[in-house]
Design a protein around this nucleic acid. Sequence first.
DNA 1: GAGTGGTCTAGACCACGAG
DNA 2: TCGTGGTCTAGACCACTCG
Lengths: 243, 243
Amino acid sequence: MADLVYQNIIADLKKAINAESFPSMKLPDERTLTEHYQVSRSSVKRALNVMANQGIIFKKRGSGTFINPLYLKGGSFFNYNGSNLGVTDSFKAGNRTPGIKLLDFQVIKPSAELQRDLFLKPDDFVYEIKRLRLFDDEPFMIETGFIPIKVMPELTEKIVSSSIFNYLETEKNQEVTRAFLSIFAEPSTDDDQAHLKLKPTEPVGIMEGIFFLDDGTPFEFSTMRLHYQYMKYNTFVTVSGRE
Amino acid sequence: MADLVYQNIIADLKKAINAESFPSMKLPDERTLTEHYQVSRSSVKRALNVMANQGIIFKKRGSGTFINPLYLKGGSFFNYNGSNLGVTDSFKAGNRTPGIKLLDFQVIKPSAELQRDLFLKPDDFVYEIKRLRLFDDEPFMIETGFIPIKVMPELTEKIVSSSIFNYLETEKNQEVTRAFLSIFAEPSTDDDQAHLKLKPTEPVGIMEGIFFLDDGTPFEFSTMRLHYQYMKYNTFVTVSGRE
DNA sequence: GAGTGGTCTAGACCACGAG
DNA sequence: TCGTGGTCTAGACCACTCG
């Protein structure tokens, strides 16, 4: 594990919370934690802020810091572990092994819309990559991605036939760490029904967005059309305005 | 606005970014900003952290801090302003005025699942509130909410016929600031089709989750079934592990 | 090596909640 | 009034990137 002070505090507090070491559902106050861990109060606050943003605890000025009862008890529909971006990571439902079937792979001239979204110059070209994603030979998602040639000139059919994000990490030491995502639903098209084995009354869930590299370069615009039973997006939301 | 140092820095930097005062897409380094605003570096870092979490900027150790080109240019599908929780707030599409039609309002014994989710004791009862939400007399959502009697003993049909969140804020000075949300889609039921004027092939988008008060009390479990054309959930995602 | 963001400290003072 | 979390400061040292 990392050797960062605030990360260690988080790990320790999580362990204590899971061990139900705080029967009153109240954590020690920040100054006591400062004393206990022999660190500065800033580090304690940093750790607590991260945990509050993850929904593990609630802080209440004047009263103290309290454990989210649902984190401890485990809500019915909830198993939120923070966010994952890679598809291969996100949908690890069960022991099923993920597969990829390449449907289309070509170079095209991007639409004006795509040029805006990927921050392209007028004469930049992009790859179009259409892939079917499977679990144990069962298709669950049609993914269409657009990647500028200039950010990945070496892309080949071989790379595209497995996880591009993995390739980035292992071969180029770059990571996709952020994304704008838009989530919605639509009736299934004939194409959806054929690939995902859907009835005409069954819809697709759609996750669409722009993925960024560490340095902020827009890396890919992707549209994911999912069999509706496979799309479940869990999140913890905080109203804006707060840090 | 608030008189907080870091909030002022955020406001000022946003203004400067929108005015395209940084043609290189690079912000001044933190020490320069510290000097310019005559504040501590911690405050500058705090402001920049918030903006990075909102997807406005990217920070790169050893290189500098850069503006997200899409924040400036405006992506095609994107108009992300942070998160909103209240339904009346979230769906302010256009100038259409929101309406509420009460479908059902009663007190019931919660299921075991609901007891877990709202952290209830075995003999606690809950309100069940089923409402149709409209824009200019056009229904777009069926909302079923469960609120423990003990957190809102004074609930009446009158309150329930308009925004409960507004009532909380104005009358009880409490705010719903956080929620666990789960987002998915399903084929529409006969009931959905009747209320939302959907064809049998058209689906509903579903947003379901637990809403919390400031102090961490689970306040409501709500299931929102939306006309699919009205559900569009925009978000900025960061991989977990980072602060 | 110079410049940049990341982590951490030690301490001051403020704002809110409860008794 | 007192205990709690919130904001802010001033400065040290580390880790990464790039010329």
